[in-house]
């Protein structure tokens, strides 16, 4: 994969100030502040309906926030959306694509949208081949997307998110639909990206993945951030600071579930 160019290295990869999103009477996100540093994998966790997906959709410009500011690589999403969006690669949890394009055509289309390799058609083709090879889609590159399986579509979305070498990858449930081999591929890719100075903002329910990959983790519940920090900092926050072996799952349950529910979960586990 090609080397990453960071345009505003002094600015954090992602910064959110006072983000709120209301749907009529429902307050999905109630004023959250976040900062993701360069070269960091940031995990964003929360129970169902906590506001994770709403936050992610707002971060990538799919939803307009009710209040607050979002900065991507130092560019304001509100005031400078074109620059802000051009340095982000978004991987949603559901890979909705243009079904009547082939894989290769789809990637060419994305290159056009992100205005990359404008005058270098040959480099673009090389880059497309590189990505298709990396995600094991080479053979399927000339097939219509409608014939792809869910996992293949997910891998095609990942290829498209990497095509323009984004500084930040925002990903919602990265492991959904991937087989163990694809999951390993993705984990390695994320690690490689952050080593090169890139940043990952990742929402997931797979706590083992978050534990393995994330440098820092934020937990959102009922639209508010209830904890943020490294795993050790979260342990302390959950009152489990002495137990270095405490897994993220236990910490997460402790922070997001009331005592009675934890007893029920423990009882079920026996």
């Amino acid at each position: 994969m090609s080397a990453l160019v960071i345009r505003n290295p002094e600015a954090p990869a992602l910064e959110v100030r006072g983000l709120k999103k209301h749907y009529s009477a429902i307050e999905a996100v109630r004023g959250i502040d976040l900062k993701v540093e360069r070269g960091e994998i940031f995990g964003f966790l929360g129970p169902n309906g906590a506001g994770k997906t709403t936050t992610i959709r707002t971060l990538v410009g799919l939803l307009q926030p009710t209040a607050g500011d979002i900065f991507l690589g130092g560019f304001s999403l509100k005031d400078d959306p074109v620059e802000a969006k051009s340095i982000v690669g978004f991987i949603p949890d559901r890979p909705f694509l243009y079904e009547k394009l082939t894989g290769r055509e789809f990637l060419r289309f994305i290159a056009g949208l992100y205005r990359v390799y404008d005058d270098e058609p040959e480099t673009l083709e090389e880059r497309i081949e590189e990505l298709l090879r990396f995600f094991q889609l080479e053979e399927w590159g000339d097939e219509l997307v409608e014939a792809y399986s869910h996992g293949m579509k997910q891998r095609l979305v990942m290829s498209s998110a990497l095509l323009h070498d984004p500084e930040i990858i925002i990903v919602d449930e990265p492991m959904v639909g991937l087989d163990p081999r694809g999951a390993r591929l993705l984990k390695n890719l994320f690690k490689e990206r952050v080593r090169g100075g890139g940043s990952i903002f990742m929402s997931t329910h797979t706590l083992a993945v978050a534990e393995e990959l994330c440098d820092r983790i934020a937990i959102i519940q009922e639209g508010e951030l209830i904890a943020e920090g490294t795993l050790q900092e979260l342990r302390i926050r959950a009152g489990m600071g002495d137990d270095e072996a405490a897994r993220l799952e236990a910490v997460f349950l402790k922070l997001t579930t009331d005592e009675e529910m934890i007893d029920v979960v423990d009882a079920i586990r026996g």
Binding site: G61, L97, I110
Partner: peptide, 14 residues
């Protein structure tokens, strides 16, 4: 554009 409209919305194309 259907459900793939997210590609346009999250891209730098206004």
């Amino acid at each position: 554009e259907g459900n793939a409209f997210w590609l346009i919305r999250s891209s730098p194309l206004g």
